[in-house]
Amino acid sequence: MIELDQLTGHLTSIKTSDWNKLFALIPEIEATETFGEIKGGDKLPDGSIAMPYWNSAKIVDKFLYTVADLDMVPIYNWASWQEGNRLLDDNRTNYNNLTIETLCKLLTIIIRADRFSDGYLVSMFTNGKMLKIIQAIKINREQHFLVQKQR
């Protein structure tokens, strides 16, 4: 994970071919019907019950690997960033209007929150917000690239 104050410089240094690894996931996400399922909850031979857990689809794992490989999930106090929670909770949020840095901060909230609330990441894929965030990163990146080319 990258420090927040280094994020902007890092994002501008990512090659287009590397960005395309993330953007190549979009059609696969769009085609996926189920992003995970609950496993466990079974009674074990000793009488105890195995705790239920979310088993995510391969596309979710591909996404996690890709954002880790691109190092685009910044370190910051995500739990206290109320604006980020508001953006994610509001179904009317237009992610296309947000900066790539803000979108990456939202990724931090989603990925980190999943560690404390198993299934949160899967729910963000299921409700379409993760797809919207990735698409917004793509749009933002393309607009930034065009501005850089015009200079």
Rank of each mutant, 00 (worst) to 15 (best):
W78M: 01
T32Y: 05
L70H: 05
D71P: 05
M51R: 14
P52E: 14
V73W: 00
P74M: 02
D46Y: 06
K58V: 02
W19Y: 13
W81T: 06
R86K: 15
D42N: 14
E33Y: 12
E33F: 08
N55G: 04
T34P: 01
E37F: 01
D69A: 15
K39P: 02
P45G: 04
Y76C: 03
N85Y: 15
F35P: 01
D69W: 05
I59H: 01
L70S: 08
L44W: 11
N77G: 11
D42F: 10
I26C: 08
G40S: 12
T66E: 04
R92P: 00
I29C: 04
E30A: 10
E33M: 05
E83T: 15
K39N: 10
P27W: 00
I49P: 04
T34D: 13
F23A: 08
Y53E: 11
W81V: 06
T34G: 02
V60I: 07
N85L: 12
F63V: 07
F23V: 11
T66K: 10
Q82S: 15
I26G: 07
W81K: 14
N77K: 12
I26Q: 07
A50S: 15
D89H: 12
A79L: 10
I38N: 07
L87D: 05
N20F: 08
Q82H: 13
T34N: 12
P74A: 03
F23T: 10
S56L: 02
I75E: 09
L88P: 04
I38C: 04
N85E: 14
E83G: 02
K43S: 11
G36A: 00
G84K: 06
R92S: 14
T32Q: 11
K58M: 05
M72C: 10
F23R: 08
I49E: 13
N91K: 13
V67G: 01
T32D: 09
M51Q: 15
T93S: 11
I59G: 00
P27D: 09
A24V: 07
G36W: 02
I75V: 12
R92W: 03
G40L: 00
K21Y: 00
P45Y: 03
G41K: 01
V60G: 00
L88I: 04
L70F: 09
R86M: 12
K43Y: 09
P27H: 06
T66A: 10
A57M: 00
K58T: 11
P52V: 08
W54R: 09
L87R: 03
K62Y: 00
E28C: 05
G41L: 08
I38M: 06
D18E: 14
E30G: 05
A57P: 05
L25M: 12
I29Y: 02
D89F: 11
Y65A: 10
F63C: 05
K21S: 13
S56V: 06
I59Y: 07
D71H: 07
Y65G: 07
S48Q: 05
L44Q: 15
E37Y: 04
Y76Q: 07
V60K: 00
W78H: 06
S56K: 00
E83A: 12
D42V: 12
P45V: 04
I26R: 09
G47T: 01
A79I: 11
L88T: 04
S56M: 07
S17V: 12
E28S: 09
T66P: 02
A31N: 15
E28T: 05
D69I: 00
E33N: 14
I38G: 02
L22S: 04
D71E: 13
L44I: 10
R86E: 15
D90M: 03
L87F: 10
G40E: 04
E37T: 14
E30D: 08
G36P: 01
